[in-house]
């Protein structure tokens, strides 16, 4: 299992580069071209990352985060969902940069190898910025009524958040 996880990336890179070469693609030039896109994205998200990481770090330092999580913890303990992950679960569907900042915060606070760090990573990797996606997709066609879309998407997100905790507990301990 560990081996598949570790081998997935090298195998994928091998497959893509070999496939590209077999098709006569200028692999190096393509790579450089694509890497520029990555550079652009990084620069583009920096301002919002600064704004949100400042807000989240302040929120934790002020003691407000602690108060909020202990307020909702009785509710979460019913489904044995760690209260430290509640802010991330709430923020994930709303803002990608904010959840990125929260995961980073959880990883530095508890460590990437901790149970919480692993749960946060899986939650981040297996869900999307639901509201942003819906706004972009329905916005481009001027839809007035999106019917059951938000309900279905948020239900799926909720299941994903809870499943993350259980799957990490089961597979990584």
């Amino acid at each position: 299992m560990q081996y598949i996880s570790a081998a997935a990336i090298p195998l994928m890179i091998f497959g893509i580069v070999a496939f590209g070469m077999s098709r006569g693609i200028k692999t190096f030039e393509c790579f450089i071209d694509g890497a520029k896109d990555g550079l652009e994205t990084s620069v583009r998200i920096l301002p919002s990352l600064i704004a949100l990481l400042v807000a989240i770090t302040m929120f934790r330092a002020s003691g407000a985060l602690e108060m909020l999580t202990s307020l909702i913890s009785p509710l979460l303990s019913v489904i044995s969902f760690p209260k430290e992950l509640a802010p991330l679960a709430l923020m994930r569907p709303i803002s990608g940069s904010a959840s990125l900042a929260l995961v980073r915060d959880l990883l530095t606070q508890h460590g990437a190898d901790s149970f919480l760090g692993r749960c946060a990573s899986v939650m981040m990797g297996s869900t999307e910025t639901t509201f942003y996606t819906l706004a972009v997709y329905f916005g481009c066609v001027n839809m007035k009524d999106t019917r059951y879309t938000v309900k279905a998407a948020l239900l799926a997100d909720l299941c994903g958040m809870i499943a993350s905790v259980y799957v990490v507990r089961l597979m990584l301990g």
Binding site: S5, L107, A112, V122, V167
Partner: peptide
């Protein structure tokens, strides 16, 4: 984000399952 973990990739299969 997980650079510095003893195994940054260990979350890939859990992520697939949850996805």
């Amino acid at each position: 984000l997980r650079q510095g973990a003893s195994n940054p990739y260990e979350i890939i299969i859990p992520v697939w399952i949850v996805s």
